[in-house]
């Protein structure tokens, strides 16, 4: 992903980055090339919803579920995902 993420971006985890139920540590981890990430609960909520939807739609969904202001939620979504995008752990589906 070359551009900074926006509300219109439709990022996805690429096939080589997998969420994995780690039974030994009792948490969900993100397995990526040469890295194991231990995403925070917020990141996991967001990651679980990435299916080609725009981040605007992801934020809408989370708003309903968590009754929080949309700008705050969208800010959080962009925040947790930009970091993953910069490390090459997100891709955008070409339309």
């Amino acid at each position: 992903m070359r551009e900074p993420l926006t509300a219109e971006s439709r990022p996805l985890l690429p096939p080589f980055c997998r969420l994995h139920e780690d039974r030994v540590r009792g948490r969900t981890v993100l397995l990526a090339p040469e890295r194991v990430l231990f995403p925070c609960p917020t990141s996991l909520l967001v990651l679980a919803r990435l299916d080609g939807r725009s981040l605007s739609e992801v934020a809408d969904g989370l708003c309903l579920e968590f009754a929080a202001p949309r700008e705050v939620i969208l800010g959080d979504v962009l925040g947790v995902l930009q970091d993953l995008a910069d490390q090459g752990f997100l891709e955008e589906r070409t339309p």
């Binding site: 994995h20 780690d22 030994v24 540590r25 981890v29 397995l31 040469e34 194991v36």
Partner: peptide, 10 residues
């Protein structure tokens, strides 16, 4: 299998 049971992920 032993590695995975021990917590190894990669």
């Amino acid at each position: 299998r032993e590695a995975a049971e021990l917590g190894i992920l990669q």
